[in-house]
């Protein structure tokens, strides 16, 4: 099966990432030890975007093909995206507390964007659970998921407009402003997070599929 292999890869990558983060990556001269949360926070945030993007892609697939599996896959991807999004908010908050002394900073664009996205995608579940299961629900969820990926850049632009920019800029047009050891650690951490998403996605999908099969069997028996 694919799942055990994926889980094994994830475990290996996660172990490697943790080892690199705590023992290999140099301590930041300015922020000290607390800067290491960067290797969790940013990969989690990027993974969350990947989840929302994947969910929207599956939503588009659903609208094209009317394949019920695509609807379920879109839902599971967005569910994972919301979980990673919540983790982004939590890790971002901790980092803000450690480096600026406040739990929340409205001038931190990424955090504010994640708050907006978190609110938006939580409403996705309200929508989904208030409509009876069926093609109508699948279509509406798909349309809403597609609105989400359009809202990401629009909200980002809005937040950029609305405030001054004090978030530390690590990536800019001159490439990452990091030492090679930091870049390497970051890439491994990102790969580990993406692998974690892939594993959790497959696990939840398998569970949901078993659930729906069971439901069908029960209906046949009833």
């Amino acid at each position: 099966m694919r799942l055990p292999a994926l889980a094994a890869i994830t475990t290996g990558l996660m172990g490697a990432a943790l080892a690199l983060i705590f023992f290999y990556a140099p301590t930041d001269a300015d922020q000290g030890f607390s800067q290491r949360i960067f290797y969790f926070h940013v990969p989690i945030a990027l993974t969350s975007y990947a989840c929302f993007g994947w969910g929207a892609w599956k939503a588009l697939r659903y609208l094209r093909t009317r394949d019920e599996r695509a609807d379920l896959e879109s839902y599971v991807a967005i569910h994972q995206g919301v979980i990673f999004g919540a983790l982004t908010l939590i890790t971002g908050s901790i980092w803000a507390k450690a480096s600026w002394g406040v739990w929340w900073s409205w001038s931190e664009n990424q955090l504010v964007l994640f708050l907006v996205l978190f609110l938006f995608y939580c409403a996705y579940f309200m929508l989904r659970f208030s409509v009876d299961a069926g093609p109508a629900r699948a279509r509406m969820s798909a349309v809403y998921a597609l609105f989400g990926v359009v809202l990401i850049p629009v909200s980002f632009l809005a937040i950029r407009l609305s405030q001054k920019f004090i978030h530390p800029v690590v990536f800019n047009s001159h490439g990452p402003q990091m030492a090679h050891s930091q870049t390497f650690t970051f890439c491994v951490a990102l790969a580990a997070m993406l692998a974690l998403f892939a594993t959790l996605y497959q696990v939840e999908l398998a569970g949901k599929r078993i659930d729906s099969h069971l439901r069908e069997l029960r209906e046949l028996l009833a």
């Binding site: 907006v116 996205l117 609110l119 938006f120 409403a123 309200m126 929508l127 809403y144 609105f147 809202l151 629009v154 909200s155 632009l157 809005a158």
Partner: peptide
């Protein structure tokens, strides 16, 4: 549904 989208 509407308020998060209305933030921009």
């Amino acid at each position: 549904l509407f308020l998060p989208t209305a933030i921009p």
